[in-house]
C-alpha cells in the first residue's frame, strides 16, 4: 500500500466511527459546538499520530505480555500533553471541553489503531494511519456539530448566520440529539457507499 492508500483507508474506507462504531462517546459529548469539535478532533489527530508513531518505533522491543500496558502508557502521555497544552495556552477552550480531553485516553480509536496498525507497521506508515483515522473522526464530529450548532444556536463556529426569526432547537443542544444525528449519518453513508452484502 502506498502512503496515500493508507490515509484513504483509515480515514474513509475503514472510518473508525461509521465503519467500526468506535469513539462514539466523545462524538456525543463534544459536538454541541463546532469549535469544540474541531479542537477535540485536532487533539485526537495529534494523539493518534504520535502515539502510533512512538509505538511503531519501539514495537520490536515491546514484550508481548505487557504490550497493552505500554500502549496505554504512551497514549496517556500524549493525551496529558494535549491537556496541559490547552490549559496553558487556550484556557477558555480547555474549560469548555472540560473532562473530555482527558477522556481521549479512553477513546477506543486510539487503542484500536495502536493494536491493529501501529504494532505491526513501520513508524511513518503508522503516523499517516493515525492522521487518517483522526481526520475521519474529526470529519464525523464536524458534520454532527455543524447540524447541532446550526439548529441549536443558529450559528456556525460561533458566528450567527440565522436571523432573529430563527428559533433555537433546544434538543439539538442536548446530548440525545447527537445519538440520532450520528445514527442517520451512519445510515446514509451505509446506504450510499457500502452496498449491503446479503
Amino acid at each position: 500500500m502506498t502512503k496515500k492508500d493508507i490515509f484513504i483507508v483509515s480515514a474513509f474506507k475503514e472510518n473508525s466511527v461509521w465503519r467500526q462504531i468506535l469513539g462514539i462517546c466523545s462524538a456525543l459529548a463534544v459536538t454541541n459546538l463546532m469549535m469544540n469539535s474541531l479542537i477535540m478532533g485536532l487533539g485526537v489527530i495529534f494523539c493518534l499520530a504520535l502515539s502510533g508513531f512512538t509505538i511503531s518505533l519501539i514495537r520490536a522491543w515491546i514484550p508481548r505480555s505487557v504490550r497493552m500496558m505500554v500502549q496505554t502508557l504512551i497514549i496517556a502521555a500524549y493525551v496529558i500533553i494535549v491537556d496541559i497544552f490547552l490549559q496553558a495556552n487556550l484556557p477558555l477552550i480547555s474549560k469548555q471541553l472540560g473532562p473530555y480531553v482527558g477522556l481521549i485516553i479512553t477513546n477506543c480509536i486510539l487503542m484500536g489503531r495502536a493494536e491493529a496498525f501501529a504494532s505491526q507497521n513501520k513508524p511513518l506508515d503508522s503516523l499517516i494511519d493515525g492522521v487518517g483515522a483522526g481526520a475521519g473522526y474529526t470529519l464525523v464530529l464536524l458534520v454532527i456539530s455543524f447540524i447541532r450548532e446550526l439548529f441549536g444556536f443558529g450559528s456556525i463556529f460561533g458566528i450567527k448566520i440565522m436571523g432573529s426569526w430563527w428559533t433555537n432547537w433546544s434538543i439539538m443542544v442536548m446530548a440525545p440529539s447527537a445519538f440520532f444525528i450520528l445514527a442517520m449519518l451512519i445510515w446514509i453513508i451505509n446506504v450510499k457507499f457500502y452496498k449491503a452484502k446479503a
Partner: peptide, 9 residues
C-alpha cells in the same frame, strides 16, 4: 521494560 517506559514518559 515497563519500568523504563514509565520513567521515560
Amino acid at each position: 521494560f515497563m519500568l523504563a517506559a514509565c520513567i521515560v514518559f
